[in-house]
């Protein structure tokens, strides 16, 4: 397997929660320029799968590989090249959006000046609330702050858990465009959603977790 090609692959993955097996024998490979849409009903293991992919959780069996290497062995590189947004936004309520982005960049060992942060936030339509603490922002606006963090990360792999929750119609359209351009530029994305997402033209695969929804 070539080292340099960015691929995310999953081999014989099994996930259990307590005694219950959520899924097993899962195999897929994701290359640059592809997106993977994970579908499945509530409680079927979509979030658990994403957490396995990020390395926050350990699989019961099988392995996740990045560039052909097991996650545990390549975690430093992987964490630099992967950006994850979970159910929680991971932003600090007491800081302004700009400070949040700069803090996240600092933690990741990147440098991000104020102008760059401002540009990304404006791109997501947050131009009016740059100086407000995130505490006073609405749920959707906070979601947008988290998404702009994604843009700042320059990571080739995006892992998004229900990115559309809380976003309005414009926000959804914005995210669709972002995803499309990200994938068109050779990036990868893994996402879960219940809402319809129009990504025409993008190279998108679908994966169903667990049994068919009731």
């Amino acid at each position: 397997m070539s080292e340099s090609v960015a691929t995310l692959s999953v081999h014989d993955l099994r996930c259990t929660r307590g005694d219950r097996e959520l899924f097993s024998d899962m195999n897929f490979t994701l290359h640059g320029g592809e997106a993977l849409l994970i579908q499945g009903g509530n409680g079927q293991g979509k979030t658990s799968l994403l957490r396995l992919l990020t390395g926050l959780a350990q699989p019961a069996y099988g392995e996740v590989r990045w560039r052909g290497e097991k996650l545990a062995r390549t975690s430093e590189t992987y964490h630099r090249e992967m950006a994850y947004i979970g159910h929680l936004n991971g932003i600090k309520d007491d800081l302004t959006p700009i400070e949040n982005l700069r803090l996240a960049a600092q933690l990741a060992g990147r440098t991000l000046d104020e102008a760059q942060a401002e540009e990304k936030l404006c791109q997501l339509g947050l131009g009016r609330c740059l100086d407000l603490p995130c505490r006073v922002l609405s749920f959707g606006q906070r979601r947008r702050v988290a998404l702009s963090n994604l843009l700042c990360s320059n990571a080739p792999l995006w892992i998004l858990d229900e990115p559309l929750t809380g976003l309005d119609v414009h926000g959804v359209a914005l995210l669709e465009n972002l995803l499309k351009s990200h994938v068109d530029q050779g990036g990868m994305a893994v996402l879960t959603t219940h809402q319809p997402l129009s990504l025409e033209g993008a190279n998108i695969h679908a994966l169903r977790v667990g049994g068919p929804a009731q």
Binding site: L56, H79, M82, L107, G109
Partner: peptide, 15 residues
């Protein structure tokens, strides 16, 4: 832990 920044911190390249 509650606002999710702990997850994000664990996902940074730092050990």
């Amino acid at each position: 832990f509650r606002d999710g920044s702990l997850e994000q911190m664990l996902l940074t390249p730092q050990p």
